[in-house]
Simulated scan of single mutants.
Amino acid sequence: MTAEVATSSFRGEPQPVQVLHAGVWFPGELLGWRFDEAGACRVRVRCVVGGLRHTAWTDLAHLRLPETAPAAPPPARGIDDTGPHPLLPPRDRHPLRTALPHPRRAGLVEWLATP
């Protein structure tokens, strides 16, 4: 007697993935998944290999998200992004500027004791 295994699938479009077959990653689609009796996840995928479209169950380890091209660097805008925003009002970074006494060579203890 074999136990039935529930299968989950997407309601909308299949999710793009890459599928490992014979040591090569092929573009494909994730159609669904299920857990076998041992608790391992198996995925249902579809991909084109050798000009033929294949649909099969495979191990989750044979699946990855599609690789994308590296992101382009942001365009140079000619302004310093580390400064304050030009539309914000200027603000004083040190609003409590007061003259602080500086200790003399004698040391901090004597400086605190002098009036």
Rank of each mutant, 00 (worst) to 15 (best):
P66V: 04
P70L: 07
P90C: 03
V109K: 09
T2I: 07
A106P: 09
A61R: 15
M1R: 08
L112N: 03
A72E: 09
V17E: 00
V48P: 01
V43K: 01
A69I: 06
L52N: 10
L52V: 13
M1E: 09
A99S: 05
A99C: 07
E67D: 11
Q15W: 13
T55H: 04
G50A: 09
S9F: 07
P74R: 15
T58R: 08
P86D: 08
F26M: 03
R11Y: 10
T114H: 15
T55K: 06
A72T: 06
G51H: 03
A22E: 14
G107T: 02
P14Q: 11
V109T: 05
A3M: 15
G50C: 06
A99F: 05
L20W: 02
H102T: 11
E67K: 12
L108P: 00
V49C: 02
R91I: 11
R104E: 14
P86I: 00
W111P: 00
L52K: 12
T2W: 11
L88D: 07
C41G: 04
D92F: 00
W111K: 00
R44L: 14
G39F: 07
R46N: 01
R53D: 03
T55V: 15
A71T: 05
R77E: 15
G32V: 01
H21C: 09
A61K: 06
P89M: 01
A22Q: 15
Q15V: 08
S8I: 04
R97P: 03
F26D: 04
F35I: 03
G12T: 11
C41I: 12
P70G: 09
R91A: 15
T98D: 09
R42L: 13
G51P: 02
R64K: 15
G39W: 10
V17Q: 01
L20M: 11
R91Y: 14
A71R: 10
L30H: 01
A3S: 12
A38C: 07
L20A: 05
G51M: 05
R91P: 01
A22C: 01
G39V: 05
R105G: 14
P74H: 05
P103N: 08
G12A: 09
L112P: 00
T7P: 00
G12V: 05
H85P: 09
A69N: 15
R64H: 02
V19Q: 00
H102R: 12
